[in-house]
């Protein structure tokens, strides 16, 4: 597993060359920029950190921006850098959350703010331990896939934290995430779990849990939005990545899931997800 090497904070000088790739939020705001530096890649998260990645090397250097939150740096490394490295090295990592159910793991993918972590927390609260909150690391196991557990923490906004803790603690609401450690009421699965199905979260327009199985081609189109590559100009690797995603789309059931974004509805949604996962069990 790659190791993060933190250096002293320094200002992010303006870079002369344009990025060869960028991430932007659904609202069009810049999230990260990829710059090539010889055989290394500089990945800049504006006002947060510069990560220097040498493909194939097990160390990632980080220069935090002044006043950057150290916890945010660690989260970026675990949830944004590691998936790039996993995919670059021939593995498979998706952006999303997952829980272990009696019928196999269920994973949740979707656009930002669609409720992936909240739903994982709701499932955990109903007795289905969470495996990961942001990085779905998959390992091929025979003819199926396993979800590899990540950190035993859920990072959620204040109102979701209150819901998951069953008590109101007044975390500063909607703008900043808080980290909830796993506990008896919010269990974590420490062992890999066979992946039963991947649920693609919709926009929240349904009045109750609405589940619609997806065709493999639809699934592939969807999952390509949630699996990021380190070097989009490395065509051999992009091709291999596409092959792995295609295999995933064929081997694993994908289900479109929409539901009202109402905390009171989440137990029913969790129950519907688990019941649906049971229908795929072989």
């Amino acid at each position: 597993m790659a190791r993060l090497v933190k250096h002293p904070a320094c200002h992010q000088d303006e870079l002369a060359d344009p990025p060869f790739d960028s991430w932007t939020s659904p609202a069009g705001m810049p999230i990260a920029h990829f710059h090539r530096r010889g055989d290394t890649i500089l990945l800049r998260f504006p006002d947060t950190a510069d990560f220097t990645i040498r493909p194939g090397c097990d160390q990632v250097a980080c220069h935090p921006a002044p006043e950057a939150d150290p916890a945010a740096i660690d989260t970026l490394f675990h949830n944004s850098i590691r998936p790039l490295l996993i995919n670059h090295s021939g593995g498979l990592a998706l952006h999303g959350s997952a829980c272990a159910t009696p019928h196999g793991a269920v994973a949740f993918v979707g656009l930002s703010r669609r409720g992936k972590t909240t739903l994982a927390g709701a499932c955990a609260k109903e007795g289905n331990p969470f495996l990961t909150e942001d990085l779905i690391e998959l390992k091929r196991s025979g003819d199926s896939y396993e979800v590899v557990p990540q950190r035993p923490v859920l990072r959620v906004f204040g109102d979701t934290a209150d819901y998951l803790r069953r008590s109101r603690q007044g975390d500063a609401a909607a703008t900043r995430k808080v980290a909830l450690a796993a506990n008896d009421a919010l269990p974590f699965a420490a062992e890999p779990s066979r992946l039963g199905a991947i649920f693609v979260l919709g926009p929240g327009e349904a009045t109750g849990p609405l589940l619609s199985p997806m065709q493999p081609r639809q699934a592939l189109a969807e999952i390509m939005q949630h699996a990021f590559v380190l070097d989009i100009e490395d065509k051999a690797r992009v091709k291999a990545h596409f092959e792995r995603l295609s295999d995933l789309a064929e081997k694993v059931p994908f289900v479109a899931l929409d539901y009202p974004r109402d905390y009171a509805a989440l137990p029913d949604v969790a129950s519907a997800v688990v019941d649906h996962a049971a229908s795929y069990r072989t």
Binding site: R217, L220, A221, S246, A249
Partner: peptide, 24 residues
């Protein structure tokens, strides 16, 4: 050039490696 094809669920999907665009 640089188009990858793959049959998925009985349908053909294409990926343009240059543009990163996907087609069915």
């Amino acid at each position: 050039d640089d188009i990858v094809a793959r049959e998925v669920g009985g349908e053909t999907v294409l990926l343009d490696l240059e543009a990163g665009a996907y087609f069915g």
